[in-house]
Amino acid sequence: MAAQDSRIDTILQSPGSYPQALLEMLARDISLLEFALGFPEKQGNVYADSIGSAQKGQFPLLLQWDERWGYGPYGDSFLAISGCAPTALAMVAAGLTGDAGVTPYTIAQYAEQNGYYVPGQGTSWALMTEGCRQFGVQGEELALSEGAVMGALENGEPVICSMRPGDFTTKGHFIVLVGTEDGKIRVHDPNSIQRSSQLWSWAALEPQIKGLWAFHAL
């Protein structure tokens, strides 16, 4: 990393000022550098109560490590580190309701205060079928089949997936399938601009998916 950007030295000189999980994320993706550099001073703070803009039918790519909310606490960590599920649901809510006031931190707070965050494990799957109603959307569990997923996407229903270790994560992660293009699937990964910029085949995604839910507006 140091060869790519000399500012890495700031972090290397005081690694104890940064969560180990954040350092590991940075090692995998240099895009987090600006966020990581600000962590010692900004941790615990949230700087926005809106995602900026939202329009029905358009699902914005939101990142859990966005400086507007990524420093905010979530469970025993921070939104940037463990907030993939709230961030995924915020993308879905924005595109289905047009409400820009539902941020990843808004959902993270609700999840933590209402039992949808499990200490030591992360976000409960129940957020996708129960807690989501608080934000004007309903999730329905889908069968793990190409037909079910493609059918939902072609019907304008985004699909949130809980992922196994693989292309998207080393432990566990949530991503959003937002549409199709040329027979492949457009993915919004709340932890990666790069992975969100490419199209994915069902064959590549299917073995990595643990659970999935299609969403519609209430």
Rank of each mutant, 00 (worst) to 15 (best):
G72F: 09
P73V: 01
Y74M: 12
D76L: 03
A80W: 07
S82N: 06
S82Q: 06
S82W: 06
S82V: 14
G83N: 06
C84P: 00
C84F: 01
P86C: 07
M91E: 15
M91R: 10
V92D: 08
V92C: 09
A94T: 07
G95D: 04
G95K: 05
L96K: 11
T97P: 06
G98R: 08
A100G: 03
A100Q: 15
G101I: 00
Q109P: 00
A111E: 06
A111Q: 04
A111V: 01
N114I: 10
G115E: 11
Y116F: 15
P119F: 05
Q121W: 11
T123W: 01
S124N: 12
L127R: 00
L127H: 00
M128F: 15
M128H: 12
M128G: 00
E130I: 14
G131Q: 09
C132Y: 02
R133D: 01
G136Y: 07
Q138H: 06
L142D: 02
A143G: 12
L144I: 12
S145T: 15
E146M: 07
A148C: 10
V149C: 12
M150Q: 13
A152K: 10
N155L: 09
G156L: 05
E157N: 14
P158G: 04
I160L: 15
S162Q: 04
R164A: 13
G166P: 13
D167Q: 12
